[in-house]
């Protein structure tokens, strides 16, 4: 049975949806990204109130340039699109200056890292320095996670232990193969949250175990017109109470955003 999104929305069970994982880019590896208008239209079609958006090209290009691009693209829609900047930890001085600029000048609330694409390990000394700075600036860190050798959840947990005041989101919740690490980490570290990409049955189980706490919906929207609907469908398919789904869909995200 295919889930009917309109019926679900009409039931009133879902009060709001914040998508904590989107990408806004013009072109990446020959793939054309959604325009801002297309992304807003996709959100409207699927009942998503806000999306936290990240760069793609900024992971290895001039991160300051691509942070500016993201800020410029999202400025007209700041009630709908929440930009998170990125930096490369190996350029420590420049990265710390960029975090300060993004936070102080533009009010950016968080930083996205993709250690696999960026080619650095989350356990590197440079990353520890960046994490300390982010903690001082009260910026939330989001990581691509679930991919060895650079971004396994337990490696990211090392940062969480180093900076207990820093809010960290494991962007994919360990994906299919590392979700057990992810669950272990969010249970142990009060400052770590997880995304919604473990297999559905595992997500259902951990949602119940945690009563919906610390799990944050994210779809990876921005690349194609399938993934937002597909990932919403995953959450909607879970046999858990509406109160748990509401925590996953927006309440936990609001906490990470400082709302």
């Amino acid at each position: 049975m295919f889930v009917c999104f309109k019926c679900r929305a009409a039931s009133g069970a879902e009060k709001m949806i914040i998508d904590f994982h989107g990408h806004l880019f013009s072109e990446w590896k020959g793939v054309k990204g959604m325009s801002t208008k297309e992304l807003i239209a996709e959100m409207d079609k699927n009942g998503v109130a806000q999306t936290v958006v990240f760069t793609m090209n900024g992971y290895w290009g001039d991160f300051r340039h691509y942070n500016d691009e993201l800020i410029r693209l999202t400025n007209p829609y700041r009630n709908r699109l929440i930009p998170f900047c990125t930096v490369h930890p190996y350029e420590v001085k420049k990265a710390i200056a960029e975090l300060r600029r993004c936070k102080i000048k533009y009010g950016i609330k968080g930083v996205k890292f993709h250690p696999w694409l960026q080619g650095f390990s989350v356990t590197s000394d440079e990353m520890l320095l960046i994490a300390e700075q982010a903690a001082k600036l009260e910026m939330t860190l989001v990581f691509h996670d679930g991919t060895p050798p650079y971004c396994e959840p337990l490696q990211i947990a090392n940062l969480a232990g180093h900076c207990p005041g820093l809010k960290i989101l494991l962007g994919h919740g360990g994906l299919k193969d590392y979700y057990l690490e992810s669950v272990s980490v969010v249970k142990r570290f009060p400052n770590v949250y997880m995304g919604t990409n473990p297999p559905p049955s595992a997500l259902e189980k951990v949602s119940r175990e945690l009563n919906g706490e610390k799990i944050v919906f994210g779809s990876d929207v921005g690349f194609d017109r399938y993934c937002l609907r597909h990932n919403l469908n995953v959450i909607r398919s879970l046999s858990v109470a509406p109160a748990i789904k509401n925590k996953i869909f927006y309440k936990n995200a609001q906490y990470l955003l400082g709302n």
Binding site: M1, F2, V3, P199, A202, R225, Y226, H230, V234
Partner: peptide, 18 residues
């Protein structure tokens, strides 16, 4: 589908989006 690890409505649903 890889049930019970995944769910049939999810696995069939995603292919119907294509």
């Amino acid at each position: 589908s890889d049930i019970p690890e995944s769910k049939l409505d999810v696995e069939i649903g995603k292919l119907k989006l294509l």
